[in-house]
C-alpha cells in the first residue's frame, strides 16, 4: 500500500517537473522568436515617436515647453499647409472612395475577361510613386500630352502645375490614378463575399440594380468600406513624393501638404524642433479624423 502511494507520488512530481521544464522551454523559445521583431519595432517605431515628442516639447530649458507649438501655429506657412492638407483630404478621399466603389461594382459583373480589366486598373499601384510622379510631370506640362489631347478635341488648355488651384487638382489626379485600383481590389473581395442568393431573391421581388446597390451591396460592404475609408484617409494625409516631384509645394504654397512642409522644415530650414512639433500635429489630426470616421460608421452589430 505505502510503496504504491510513494511511487505514484514520485511519478506525479516527475510529471510536474517535466511539465514545468516544457513550460520553461516554451517561454524561452517565445522570447528568442519574438526578440528580433520587438527590438526592431521599439527601435524603429516607439523610440522615434518618443524622440519626436521630446524634441517638440523641450522640458527644463528657459523656453516654455510649448514654444515650438506656439511658433508653428503663428507661422503662416504652417497654417497654410494645414489648410491645404485638410482641403486636399476633403477633395481626394470622397473622389477615390466613390471611384473605387463604382469600379468594384462594375468589375464584379459578368464581364468577359474581367480579370484583365481589373489588373489594368490595379497596375499603377505597382509602379513606385516617384516614377508615377515623373511620368505625370511630363503628362501635365503646358506642352504635354494632356493639353495636346485637350486642344485636339477643341477644349481649352489647362495650366495644370502653374496655377495653385489646378496644381492641387493635379495632385488629386495623380494620387487617384495610383490609388483607386488598389482600394478597388478590397471592395471587389468584399462584394464577392456577399451571398448571391440575396441578389437573386431581391431580383425576384423586382428590385432594380440601383435598389440592390443601396439595400444589399452597400450594407454588405460595411466592413471593407470602413477599412478602405480609414486606410485611404491615412495614406492621403501622408502624401509626399507627388508633391516633392510635381510642384515642390507651389505655386504660392497651393500644394504644400503637411508631409512636404515638415520635410522642408527639417531638411531645408534645419529646424528639427518645429518639424517634430508639426509631425505631432499631423499625427494628432490623423487620429482625430480616423476616430470620427469610426464613430460615424455604424459599428459592430454582429
Amino acid at each position: 500500500m505505502t510503496s504504491v502511494t510513494a511511487r505514484t507520488e514520485r511519478e506525479v512530481t516527475r510529471g510536474r517537473t517535466r511539465r514545468s521544464l516544457v513550460r520553461r522551454e516554451t517561454w524561452i523559445s517565445a522570447v528568442v522568436l519574438l526578440l528580433p521583431a520587438v527590438v526592431l519595432l521599439l527601435l524603429l517605431r516607439i523610440i522615434p515617436t518618443v524622440t519626436a515628442m521630446a524634441e517638440a516639447v523641450p522640458l527644463g530649458g528657459e523656453r516654455s515647453p510649448w514654444s515650438n507649438f506656439a511658433y508653428i501655429f503663428s507661422d503662416p506657412s504652417f497654417l497654410n499647409s494645414v489648410w491645404v492638407t485638410l482641403l486636399f483630404s476633403v477633395i481626394v478621399n470622397p473622389i477615390q472612395i466613390a471611384l473605387a466603389l463604382a469600379l468594384a461594382v462594375l468589375l464584379t459583373k459578368h464581364i468577359p475577361a474581367v480579370g484583365l480589366w481589373r489588373t489594368f486598373i490595379l497596375l499603377p499601384i505597382a509602379v513606385p510613386q516617384a516614377v508615377s510622379a515623373i511620368i505625370w510631370l511630363v503628362m501635365l506640362r503646358p506642352d504635354g500630352p494632356l493639353n495636346g489631347l485637350a486642344s485636339a478635341i477643341g477644349l481649352p488648355t489647362v495650366p495644370w502645375l502653374t496655377e495653385p488651384g489646378w496644381a492641387l487638382i493635379s495632385i488629386v489626379i495623380v494620387c487617384s490614378w495610383v490609388g483607386v485600383g488598389y482600394w478597388m481590389t478590397f471592395l471587389v473581395t468584399g462584394i464577392k463575399e456577399i451571398p448571391s442568393s440575396l441578389y437573386e431573391a431581391s431580383a425576384l421581388d423586382g428590385a432594380n440594380g440601383w435598389r440592390q446597390f443601396w439595400s444589399i451591396t452597400l450594407p454588405g460592404l460595411r466592413r471593407p468600406l470602413l477599412f478602405v475609408l480609414v486606410a485611404d484617409t491615412v495614406s492621403n494625409f501622408l502624401v509626399f513624393a507627388p508633391v516633392r516631384i510635381l510642384t515642390q509645394g507651389g505655386p504660392q504654397g497651393g500644394t504644400d501638404l503637411l508631409m512636404h512642409n515638415i520635410s522642408e522644415r527639417a531638411y531645408t530650414l534645419g529646424d528639427t524642433q518645429a518639424a517634430s512639433a508639426a509631425t505631432l500635429v499631423l499625427v494628432a489630426i490623423v487620429i482625430v479624423v480616423v476616430t470620427i470616421q469610426f464613430r460615424m460608421l455604424p459599428g459592430k452589430e454582429d
Binding site: 524603429l44 517605431r45 522615434p48 501622408l238 508631409m259 518639424a275
Partner: peptide, 10 residues
C-alpha cells in the same frame, strides 16, 4: 504609427 510620419525624426 505610420512610418512616413516618423521617418523624419528617425
Amino acid at each position: 504609427v505610420p512610418f512616413e510620419a516618423i521617418a523624419i525624426p528617425l
